[in-house]
Design a protein around this nucleic acid. Structure first.
Lengths: 218, 218
DNA sequence: AACTAATATCTTGTATACAAAGTAATTGAC
DNA sequence: GTCAATTACTTTGTATACAAGATATTAGTT
């Protein structure tokens, strides 16, 4: 375990925000949370500061900490950036990737296939993340890798639900194969486009979901 | 002024790290800095936490805070990501940019021209940043805009010195014009490539600078 | 003289205490 | 009865106090 409880608390709070225990706009009471975690206000405040800089919480001076879930517009923007970031990873990876790494990627995709065959959405989700993370890594740029992982993590709660839409897993798999082919051929433009489209599908699905909600609400 | 001194202190420390007052690896003593800023350790620690999450400082548990300047490799990686991020901005802006915004961009470039004519590297630097920031904004994706601005800010101290290399300002200007043309034509691929190359020049210059240092040291 | 072990000192991490700003409630006037 | 103002009560921001881990120093042994 960590030695500084602030990091632990920050991670725990992050999880609680992700899984919806704390909804958007909720105020995070320092004293309540402090006794809930069994610590004093000092480490808890440090945790809140951390969450603020990762964008999960807004700190209003003299007012408190408030959960800040991105709205539909911001989410669309984040999905767009994710798609472009991954396209960049693919573009770089197409030129830099080794044969061994390509084998690893094929293995990751085989695991996705197995999860899809088993109709296991959770497993597919995990293996799919590994597939993508492999491409981040093979961009050969660890700064880019870290940034991609950060955004992937941030979008995780919103991606998760979409995989359960029927027909998405097989479709995702065929898209993966196109990506692997482009990377194998070393065709950076094709790889970038394939990966961008692949990720953009999620953004579009999300968009139509939002549009549906809007229509329903009006 | 801000109400929470932690943010002020964080900004001040950031500046001190940027301008080289604190070098890479320096330990930031909490009590010393606290009395230097005239506050207690509590807000200062919060400032250090902020700096850690923006990557300027490493916090080693029970050991302290250490200035963390990116090494040559990491800087190259960051330059590469900056180039790709800006390329994405250009690609999106090419499709989304309004005529008014194009005029603003031309104006920004005219100011760069004026600074170049006056041989004013500092002014050129400022106007150049505005030119680039305009493209970020015109990507129409404010999340992307913010991320680009963040990285731009982080690379600022390393870019600054390079503009003083002779011949760089005129070259930069002609590159700007290619970018403006591509954006005017709405050619997203051309705009992306032009901006990527434009930023990559700095990365390459930096690389040769590093290589020179390495050779000199051996 | 060099290495190890024990102790002393320093520094970080956490809790508590206090002060100022903000919010809610109660009282008073119209 | 409603609105405003003053007062009481939270809650945040900061300082100080304390505890535990890390570093430095000194003493002892080989």
């Amino acid at each position: 375990m960590e030695q500084r409880s602030a990091v632990n608390i920050a991670n725990s709070l992050e999880q609680l925000i992700f899984d919806g225990t704390f909804a958007d706009g909720d105020r995070l009471d320092e004293v309540r949370l402090a006794e809930q975690f069994g610590v004093s206000r000092t480490p808890l405040r440090e945790a809140l500061q951390r969450l603020e800089s990762s964008g999960l919480v807004t700190l209003i001076p003299r007012r408190g900490a408030f959960v800040r879930q991105p709205g539909p517009l911001e989410l669309l923007e984040m999905f767009e950036v994710m798609a472009e970031l991954e396209a960049v990873c693919a573009r770089l990876a197409a030129r830099r990737m080794s044969d061994d790494a390509l084998d690893m990627l094929r293995l990751a995709n085989a695991r996705c296939q197995a999860a899809s065959d088993a109709q296991d959405a959770d497993l597919y989700y995990t293996e799919n993340e590994r597939f993508h993370a492999t491409i981040y890594r093979e961009s050969g740029n660890s700064f880019l890798e870290q940034e991609s992982l950060k955004l992937q993590k941030r979008l995780r709660p919103f991606r998760r639900q979409q995989l359960r839409l029927r027909g998405r897993m097989p479709q995702s798999l065929t898209e993966h194969e196109v990506i692997v082919e482009a990377l194998t051929a070393g065709d950076s433009n094709a790889a970038a486009n394939a990966l961008r489209d692949h990720v953009n599908v999620q953004g579009e699905r999300f968009q139509s979901l939002m549009a549906g909600l809007k229509t329903a609400a009006s």
